[in-house]
Amino acid sequence: MQSIDIEGTSKTPTVNLNAENGLIEINGRSIPENSVEFYKPLVDWLEEYKKLPAEKTTVNIQLEYFNTSSSKCILDVFKKLEDINKGDAEVVINWHYEEDDEDMLEAGEDYESIIRVPFKMIEVAE
């Protein structure tokens, strides 16, 4: 399965989706006006990946900013991961937040309470 590599911009994150090693990484800023357009390829990729996922999928997500329009799309991404986790494959979501960024920690906790996938909250230096 083809991996997805998207370079970040000032409004959209860097994305690497790799089916071989089960590594999913989303880094940077996610504040586009039209987030559905940006996230659709990711959700589609996960839908395909779901059919034959790696034994263990590790998700590293580290966002400096994200807007409310992205928050819905990120939930859609997590829902796909939840589906994968329901099967035999294992999924873990590492939610990174910069130290002192309580809003970002809380955002991660919001998702953790909605999505049935193990979350790890990881504080990183600014």
Partner: peptide
């Protein structure tokens, strides 16, 4: 507010217009 935010996040479809009403709550 946190409860309302999560409720809108889970239950509202994203609209063509954007965040589906999360902006002001956020």
């Amino acid at each position: 507010l946190k409860g309302l935010y999560k409720d809108i996040l889970v239950n509202n479809k994203i609209s063509e217009k954007g965040g589906g009403g999360l902006g002001l709550v956020d």
